[in-house]
């Protein structure tokens, strides 16, 4: 079972690269440290780009879930 509460869910399905990542960046900027944001993406590049960015930006990727055509990334704002 997931031991986190998703503070905000973003549906970025259908949005082309770098749309989903941009939406995640914006949501994390607006969030407070410790809050969790989830983003749903159908963009193939997201699978590499989002984990890469999360690591570089110093946040925490809590989960990556396949959801049909889409991938759901669950990210905690860590700083």
């Amino acid at each position: 079972m997931a031991d986190y509460v998703v503070h905000r869910e973003i549906d970025a399905r259908g949005s082309a690269c770098p749309g989903p990542l941009m939406e995640l960046i914006r949501a994390l900027k607006a969030a407070e440290k410790g809050q969790v944001v989830a983003v749903l993406s159908t963009d193939q590049g997201s699978k590499v780009d989002i984990p890469e960015w999360v690591e570089k930006a110093g946040h925490k990727l809590l989960a990556t879930e396949e959801d049909g055509e889409a991938t759901r990334f669950v990210v905690e704002k860590a700083r």
């Binding site: 770098p18 941009m22 780009d49 890469e52 960015w53």
Partner: peptide, 11 residues
């Protein structure tokens, strides 16, 4: 524009 975004995102 997309490449610039990638650069900006990667700080």
């Amino acid at each position: 524009s997309i490449l610039a975004t990638g650069g900006a995102a990667m700080d």
